[in-house]
Structures are given as C-alpha cells and as structure tokens.
Design a binder for these strands. Structure first.
Lengths: 153, 153
DNA sequence: CATATACCCATTGACGCCCATATATTCCCA
DNA sequence: TGGGAATATATGGGCGTCAATGGGTATATG
C-alpha cells in the first residue's frame, strides 16, 4: 500500500517525540524514510505531512512560474518558508515544532488521519469531530457517498 | 534535502556575525560550503542569498528576459552589480555587509526564510508580516495554494 | 598601526542515537 | 489447529554530539 490510510492516536512523550504510525512509515520511499515534511493545513487547524518527494514536485511547479512575478514570491514564501522538515529516528519517532503544535492545539496526543497522498495530524478530539462533520456535510448535501465509493473508473 | 525550507530567527553578535541555519548550510554543495552570495531583493526590503552555484541559474533567468527591454538592463544591473560574496566560518557564521543590513532594516536579529533554491533574510517583524501578506494575497486572489500543495503530477 | 575578520576554544541546550521494555502481532511447528 | 516463540510496534530514558552563541587572540589589509 502506497497511500496514507486509516487513523491512529499516538502519545507525545516527555521529549516531545511521537511515533509516526508504522503503516505511514511504509508509505515513505525506502530511500528517504527518515525525513518528512510538515506544514499548516490551509483550511483546518491541523498539520499536514508527507514525504520529502512531494516537496520536490512542489519546487518544480513553483520554479515554472515567472521568476520575476509577484506570484512567484507569494507562492515561494507561503510554501517554502512555512514548510518544515523533520527527522524520523530509527524507532519511527519525530518532533513536531512548537509553532505547529500551537496551530493545531496539540498537547499530549496526536491523531493521525490518512488522506491518501498525505496525512493530517489533529488534536484527537477536534480531529474526530472534524471527521464526523465532514461525513455529515457529505450526507446533508446529498453527495452520493455511496456512488463515490462503489463506482469504478 | 537540497532545498532551503522553513524559517529561523538568529541573533547577530557583537562582532556582527550570524549563524546560517544548519539546514541551510547543508543545502550548499559540500565543496563550496564556506561561501555564499548575497544581494538585495528586487521587490522587497530583504536580502536574498544562495550558494555560488546558483549564479548561473540567475544569469539564465535574466537572459530569458527580452534583451532590449528596459527590464533586462534594470535586472541585470540591480542584481549582478550588487552581488557580494561572503565567507562562512567553521562555526557556520558569516557577516552581513552594512549596506545590506541597512537596506533590510536589520539590526540585532535576522529572520531566515527558505525559498526553495535560495533564501531571504529579513528584519524579523517585517519578515513575518510579509509572509502573512503573501498568504493573504494568494487566498484573496483565489490562487490555488492548496492545489500547489496537494495536486499530483 | 588600527580596524576588521578569520581562527580557535568554551558554554548551553537541543537533538540524534542507542538500548530497554511492554504489548501486540505474526509465524511456525508439534 | 493450538500454543509458544520470534518479531514488530509504541513508548521510556541515558548519553554523546551538534547547533547556536559568546569571546580571546592571531592575522590581514589598508
């Protein structure tokens, strides 16, 4: 499986370390399995993360913008300066920068939510509430969740 | 990671030295790890920096501008003639020329902002404000910051 | 000779690396 | 197929190393 799926709740220890769920570690390419990138989610009070490979794609995309345009600077600043890289130790643990923990209201536990090509980290209660809300919105708006899940490409 | 990412705020000591963030040092080629180039940002009151290898890329970008346009001369002059090289000492510190510090309003602290293939140095408060402004502009113009981060190739 | 800058050494706190344990999971064999 | 052993995962903690910072002294450069 090369996608981030399922959800997990892990503890943050005294040193601030938290285990990246094993199944998430396996999604990372064997090469850069000891480094991930984190950044603030744009729409929610959560942290998003993924492997460094993704960052290189983003860099390529930004590099294709007009170098002297304002957009270039805005994207470059908003993305590169906001992204942090974190090392994953041999036991699969990493540190969440203080600023990101504040942004997500994370203190002693982290809820990991697989999102396919990336994952989100939430303060557990808020995270669970968010998934409920998301599902409720889908049903309420009569989006056909069932179709979405069963249709073949 | 071979990109300048994240942001750091470091102090300038009595001798005018400031530490280049460790992760930035690692982006520089192992060969010329003791030398960086600095120049005034064209669009903002900040200093931009990168490894000497990046010069070629800058030259290429400028060459892609219309050779007979006013912009060509302006950029060419503004950047090349203003570039200064600085040595990074064994502890990873370097001196910021007085003129550049004045240009950026830097006094006792420097905020380093990763920008992918280069980085910017700001007076901390102005730098943080700039980041907020950049993000606001992108969101306001409905430029798809989210897509930039999450889309697949 | 005077000022600036490179080199060397020191300190402090953060972080990486290593080892340890408990629980959970998988595997293998009788 | 049941049960025990081997393995993996989440978690705890010791300790050495490195990064950021401070400062003394040699050296260079005009």
């Amino acid at each position: 499986m090369d996608l981030f799926v399922s959800k997990y709740i892990n503890k943050i220890d005294k040193k601030g370390r938290v285990s990246l769920p094993s199944s998430f570690r396996n999604v990372l390419p064997k090469a850069n399995r000891n480094e991930i990138i984190l950044y603030k989610s744009i729409k929610t009070p959560s942290i998003e993360g993924c492997g460094v490979g993704r960052l290189k794609e983003i860099a390529k995309r930004i590099n294709n913008l007009d170098f002297f345009s304002e957009d270039y600077d805005d994207f470059s600043t908003s993305i590169f300066s906001e992204i942090v890289t974190t090392n994953v130790d041999k036991e699969g643990r990493f540190l969440i920068p203080e600023e990101l923990k504040l942004y997500a209201g994370i203190k002693t536990e982290v809820a990991f939510f697989g999102q396919g090509h990336f994952f989100q980290m939430w303060e557990p209660k808020q995270g669970l509430k968010n998934t409920e809300d998301a599902r409720r919105r889908l049903l309420k708006e009569k989006k056909s969740l069932r179709m979405m899940l069963t249709q073949q490409k």
